[in-house]
Write a protein that binds this DNA or RNA. Structure first.
Length: 276
DNA sequence: CACGAGACCTGTTCGC
DNA sequence: TGCGAACAGGTCTCGT
């Protein structure tokens, strides 16, 4: 589930709580249990527990797709990758299948990192910049303008879709929101980045911000067996709609492969210049 | 710089 | 029904 809107949603739940979860901010970490060694990127597991126990969770935020939990001395950084998720539950619950890291908190609570596919990673560091250093701009930052995007596109000769997925170009876009944005902007995923006109760039910039903002407003998307209560999946225009009519023009939605990732598009709304 | 392939993992869905 | 292949929200590394 985790692209920018889903990570934003989780960060907000950890900060403010939800209907069935109290907030974790302000709580001290009393114990730590690492259940899958490779989940921990740094420090070595031998020092992780001794270092994190006793620290208090100060806040909860996000940068790109990284979840940031500033602690009293360090920052806990979590990347959910493909299947990661975070739960706040009672310490009395038996650890669920696929829990990889559990932090016992004040108030008999537990913050659990659950990650079926084991791709997710956790960092405990005093220097978040070392982990986040190469991320591109935040697409929803008010300071990020269409002109900025146009500037950044000028030096790139890559196909637009893999470029938007490149986190050093723009932080937070994932596979689904990227092709949803390209569909909304009526741009083919294979268009070469520096051939976009200023007008097309403006469309793309608006579409990116719209799909992300709508995703956040819907509390993210709930897909397949991963469910968190988000509802943005009901707004998807082309995702998993290959073979169905485009909501815009009725043409059959196609699925192609770009950079080894499935990509959905409407061939009529999103024509590729120079081919027919 | 750009691209493709392979790796890392488990679970579900698809096609025969 | 069974079984292997393909596929899934991400990113890293290596070779060309």
């Amino acid at each position: 589930m985790p692209e920018l809107p889903e990570v934003e949603t989780i960060a907000a739940i950890l900060r403010h709580g939800s209907d069935d979860q109290p907030p974790v901010t302000g709580r001290q970490i009393l114990d730590a249990h690492l259940l899958w060694e490779r989940t921990l990127a740094t420090p070595p597991s031998a020092v992780f527990k001794a270092r994190i126990v006793g620290q208090t969770i100060i806040d909860s935020g996000r940068r790109g797709k990284y979840l940031l939990l500033p602690l009293s001395a360090d920052t806990l950084i979590i990347h959910l990758r493909m299947s990661g998720d975070l739960f706040v539950e009672s310490v009395t619950e038996p650890p669920a299948l696929h829990h990889r890291l559990m932090l016992d908190l004040e108030g008999r609570l537990r913050l659990a990192f659950n990650d079926t596919r084991k791709f997710g990673r956790v960092w405990l560091t005093s220097d978040p910049g070392a982990v986040l250093g190469r991320l591109g701009p935040e697409p929803l930052d008010p300071a990020f303008t269409a002109g900025d995007l146009y500037q950044r596109l000028q030096t790139r000769r890559r196909q637009i879709k893999p470029l938007l997925l490149d986190q050093s170009f723009l932080a937070g876009m994932g596979n689904i929101y990227t092709y949803e944005a390209l569909n909304l902007a009526r741009l083919h995923p294979l268009i070469i980045a520096n051939t976009l006109t200023e007008e097309q760039t403006e469309q793309l910039w608006g579409a990116i911000r719209q799909v992300l903002a709508d995703g956040i407003r819907s509390n993210g998307a709930s897909i397949d067996w991963v469910y968190r209560g988000g509802s943005y999946q009901h707004h998807f225009r082309v995702y998993k709609r290959a073979g169905e009519p485009c909501p815009e023009c009725g043409t059959t939605v196609e699925r192609i492969v770009v950079g080894q990732r499935g990509t959905h598009l409407c061939p009529r709304c999103q024509p590729l210049p120079g081919s027919d």
